[in-house]
Each structure stands twice: as structure tokens, then as C-alpha cells.
Design a protein around this nucleic acid. Structure first.
Lengths: 340, 340
DNA sequence: ATGAAAGCGCTAACAG
DNA sequence: CTGTTAGCGCTTTCAT
């Protein structure tokens, strides 16, 4: 690859001048500019980003740490992040930790070593928060992309998404349709990150005078298989449920499948509502009614927050940006309750 | 972030010695090593990757260019690539071009500018092959991840996957089940990249004495919606089909949905077979019979090829690695033909 | 308007 | 065994 020196030589100027015209700084005569541009063009010159990063003290990359790109939501989100990052003139490095702490540390160390200028963290749960704090203390901006624990003050700058409200909205929808026996499939452990979604749901039921019994809730994991298993267990224990609230779309798809297994027709026999609105939600049959989370907005805000921190060079305080409220998306998986 | 100089100062040695102990080169006394390591530890030293990349003439990153991370197959593949790349000690930069040439050029220019040491290209169809050739001519290794055109000599090093054979296998499976009226839904234009999958299918049918009529084939796009639309058109034109071959899993899911729309039961009334074996293939109901492509192997081979080129510094010839043969995965969407 | 010079943090000979 | 030196490609004062 041609260097700035070669371009300068060809144009009959010094590297400094080449740099000036390429970055539009300093005063350069139109004629010289022309000559330099032409030389650069001719040589196919591309600035060496490493050299630039070194001298400028920062690379033009942002890292996105995800625990597993296998969960279909993450790539969707990563896509949005990538777009936002590019819009700010940066490149995105995807750091898939595979839920492996060693892998994560390797990534974070590399970021500390100027692999990337800042870190966007998708899921704070699978991540060693201490590592992130250490990184931050060394001057590396860290932003949490989707904070969903209103009871805890985030230890780092973050974008907050009101998943509690998403649970409320899902419950209200089911209640509105006349459902009273509603089961819940939660895609995390009782102390896990979906708990506020469930609380929003349960609180709303309680307000309507409906108290969930323990056997009407199943906690598990955020996967289709787990959702299916939970639904099976749920229906076995409480056969007269007319609706199931699911804390995430992925397990909701599993619940849909369990209904097929059990010969139940959705939504005639059973209504199902999820949260997030991943792409597949409208691509399955019956399509999934769900509470859409502002994914692209959250990505946008996270990047914006990152850029703010970078610009102001203030990495110490914990700013929080609030994403807009989740929205109900009614599709085919929910219907008015029917006596059975 | 602490630099190598600071570590040296703290340990009472020069930067060179620090570098030596950190990289395990040169002879260093055990005692000094100890001291240096401790100093590095204490300062939380992480080597600056940009400086290292600059002096070594190459960054520790590999770029993966995908046309759209929105297609669920790409993230799955990206995951595999990421793992393989990490295993080789590199980091992965995901370059999602969104099918936008400008975006792609921006990425390729950045790679030319040492953003990454080499480029892995997922789908050569959406990519300006000229750009890639230019890049290669400047000494940047370029590898095509999944070459599926046996009639054309790849212009660049690549991993070849025998999609023609995948089509053959799918057809044989359907034939074996007694199907004779078989439709085809192709997820690309007639000249597009799925054409060899279809040819494998059609040739096998022809060998069995079955000639596809034009109305029994629908060309379209690689998406669920396109698959659904094609299936609707197909069934409208040829109602007595007992099976449909689909060139990819994504449109195959659409075909499955079309069957639901039409009140057809799969596999009783209609058998459906896809190609690839994406995650969702076994997560839908009925689960999808498909011809599994060796995804992780292809990713592995692509990275391996990249590493070979990097090591041997030979970027000029067009090596090709052959991935192993696709394998039939029988699930719920295919069954023995039944008279209707 | 352009050039000279210093330096970002690190590595790689080569000296000592 | 450890230090010295030079330089990767670029940006950025400061001179001219």
C-alpha cells in the first residue's frame, strides 16, 4: 500500500502537505491540492488507520460485546448498532464472548489495548461487571445497551428500556381480551434479567384482582427449547389456562410450538404474547402478538451516549438515556377468551 | 493506559526488555522477568495494539464482509468465523454492507488502510468483485467463503461448497419417498447464486425421467416472504404437487407457512425440503427436512485459507479448499407420498 | 502556502 | 542478559 510519503513524492510535496489536503486542514493552494489529490488517486492511497490511531491516541472502532450471537435478537441489535456506529464514522468490532469469561477478558484487554475506543455491552448479566469497571477506570468509555433493572442504579452509563412497562402492556392486552387464567413463562431465573418483565405482568394481574399461583409461573432460559418445555410443564400443571405471557419472543416461539404439540389451536384455545418483536415474530404462523421494544432506538441512543462520552472525555459519571416506551403489536397469537 | 515505557521505568529496565519478556523473545533473567511482569500487572498494562500493528505492519484483525446481517444465516456463519478467527489469535471486524455499494467501498478502503489484515467475503454476489480484486492487487488477502458456482473458476481463493450435490440429495430424498409431482422454489433469480442448487435438483429428476415444466419452478428471493409467495403461485398453478424443493431454508420456512395458509398439512399433503440447515430449521413446527451444509467447516476452512495466505504471503494465486459434502437431515416436513 | 521535525507506543536488529 | 537505536505511517506544531 502506498504511503503518504510516496504520494508526497509523486506530487512534489512533503508528507505534511499531503496530510493537510487529505484532512482539509491548514491552507493549501488549490493547485497543490489538485496535484496531491491526483497523486493519491493514482497510487490508490488509503490512509493507514493504525498509524492514524496511534498518533491520534484512539482507533476509529467501537466494540460491541455480546454473550452469544446465536440468540437471534443479538444480530438484529448488532445490525442496528453497526449502522449507528458507522454513521458516527466508526467501525464496529463484534466481540462474541460465547458466554466464556476467558474470551470476554481477552476482548476487554484488547479493547484496553486500543483495539477499540469504547465498549458497548449488550447484556450486562453475562458480563463481569468488575472487568467493565476496571476498563472504565482506565479511561475507556463503557456503555450498557439495555438496562432493565429499575430497582438498581446502573454502575455505568446506559440506555434504559422499560421492560416492566412491557410486562404491564402484555398483561393489559390479555386482560382486555377477557383472559383470567393466565400462565407465565419467564426466560430467566427468578433473580435473572427478565424478572421485571414478569413483575410488570404480575402486578397488573394483581391490580385486576388476579393473583398468580406459583404453579402458574415457570422460570427458565431464554431459548425456544426452554420456552417449549416450560409451556409443557405449565399446561400439565394447569390445564385450564387460556393464555400465556412469555417474557421474551424466543421462548414465546417455543410456547407456540408446545401448543402444536398439545393439539391446542392458537389463538382459539390459547393466546400467547411475547416481548421484543424480533423478526421471527411476524414470520411464524400464527404470527406472534408481542410488545415491541425500541431496538433501533436503543442502539442509536447507546451509540449517541458513547459519542457524548468520547467527545466530552468524561468517562466517570453514569449518565442514563431512556428509550421510548414499548408498544403492543397485535398479531395472530392472541384472541378474545373463549369458554372451553 | 500504561505504556511499555512506564512499565520499564517501574521495573527499572528499558522498554526493549519489557517487550522481550512480554513476548517471550530474547534471553531475560528470571529475576528481571519477574520484576517486569509484576510491574505490568501492577500498572494494568495492556499492549497497544495499534502501535504493535504499525510496527509489525499488520493489525490483528480480519474483516468479514456480509451483505446483510439480517439474513439469519449470516450471523450463524459469522459466529463460526469469529470462533475460528479467534482461535488463530485474530479479532473479527464485521462489515455489514447492507447491500449498499458505498458502504462496501468504505469498508474495503478501510481494510486497505490496515483496518484489517485480510477480508473474508461471505456472499460474492452482492459484492463488487472488482473492488476485491483491486484490494488483492494491493497485497490484501481476500477469501471467498462459500463458492457455489462449479462452472466458473473463482477469481479469488475460496472455499467451495457443493450446493449442486445438495440439490441432488434433496431430489433423491423426495424421489425415494415416491414423489413425482415436485415443485421448486428457488431463492434467487434464474441467473442468481442458487441456480446450481436447482440444477442438482432438476438434473436428478430428469435422470428419473421427470422433466420439470416451467410453471413448476418459481424464482425469487432468499427470504421467507418470497418463499411464501412463490409457494402460493406454485400451488395455484399446479395444485397437484405433492412436494416442493426449496433452494434455501429461509424461503422453505415461507413455503411451510404457505401450506398453513392453504390448509395443507405438512408432510401429509405436502412434503417440503430445504437446503442449509439454519438453526430455525429444527425450531419450527413441523421441523424442516433439509440438506445441511457444513457451515462451521466452511468457516474454519476459510479462516485456514486466510491464515495460509497470510503466512506464505502469497496473495496472488487462487487456491480453493473443498468443504465436505452436504448431508441430508430428515425431520418432519417430508413423508412418503400419499394419493390425494 | 509549504516544509522540517518531533513523537504516538511498540518491535527488531545490533551493541555492549 | 540488557540497552541503544531506528523506524513503522501519520499528524501536528512551529518555522520559513
Amino acid at each position: 500500500m502506498a504511503t503518504i510519503v510516496e504520494v508526497g513524492r509523486l506530487a512534489g510535496v512533503t508528507p505534511a502537505t499531503v496530510s493537510n489536503v487529505l484532512r482539509g486542514r491548514g491552507r493549501v493552494s488549490a493547485e497543490t491540492r489538485e496535484r496531491v489529490l491526483e497523486a493519491a488517486q493514482q497510487l490508490g492511497y488509503k490512509p493507514n488507520l493504525n498509524a492514524r490511531a496511534l498518533v491520534e491516541g484512539r482507533p476509529h472502532t467501537i466494540a460491541l460485546v455480546v454473550s452469544s450471537i446465536a440468540n437471534p435478537f443479538y444480530p438484529e441489535f448488532a445490525l442496528e448498532v453497526e449502522k449507528a456506529v458507522r454513521r458516527s464514522g466508526y467501525f464496529l468490532i463484534v466481540c462474541n464472548t460465547n458466554n466464556d469469561p476467558a474470551q470476554e477478558i481477552a476482548y476487554l484487554d484488547a479493547v484496553g489495548g486500543a483495539l477499540a475506543q469504547g465498549v458497548l455491552v449488550m447484556n450486562a448479566d453475562f458480563v463481569q461487571i468488575d472487568e467493565l469497571l476496571t476498563l472504565r477506570s482506565r479511561g475507556v468509555p463503557v456503555v450498557l445497551c439495555m438496562w432493565e433493572k429499575p430497582d438498581q442504579t446502573p454502575p455505568l452509563p446506559c440506555v434504559a428500556v422499560d421492560f416492566y412497562q412491557a410486562g404491564v402492556i402484555a398483561a393489559e392486552h390479555l386482560l382486555m381480551l377477557g383472559h383470567r387464567r393466565i400462565g407465565a413463562v419467564v426466560g430467566s431465573e427468578p433473580t435473572g434479567n427478565h424478572i421485571w418483565r414478569y413483575r410488570g405482568f404480575a402486578d397488573t394481574l394483581a391490580k385486576a384482582g388476579i393473583l398468580q399461583r406459583p404453579e402458574e409461573v415457570r422460570f427458565g432460559q431464554d431459548s425456544i427449547d426452554a420456552g417449549r418445555n416450560s409451556a409443557h410443564a405449565l399446561m400439565a400443571a394447569v390445564p385450564d389456562l387460556t393464555a400465556i405471557f412469555v417474557s421474551n419472543d424466543l421462548p414465546a416461539l417455543g410456547v407456540l410450538q408446545a401448543a402444536v404439540d398439545l393439539g391446542l389451536s392458537v389463538p382459539t384455545d390459547l393466546s400467547v404474547v411475547g416481548i421484543t418483536d424480533i423478526q421471527f415474530a411476524h414470520q411464524v404462523r400464527p404470527s406472534l402478538t408481542t410488545v415491541a421494544v425500541p431496538t433501533s432506538e436503543a442502539a442509536e441512543l447507546a451509540v449517541q451516549l458513547m459519542m457524548n462520552i468520547i467527545d466530552k472525555a468524561k468517562t466517570s459519571d453514569t449518565e442514563m438515556l431512556i428509550a421510548s416506551t414499548p408498544q403492543l403489536v397485535v398479531r395472530e397469537s392472541t384472541a378474545r377468551v373463549r369458554r372451553r
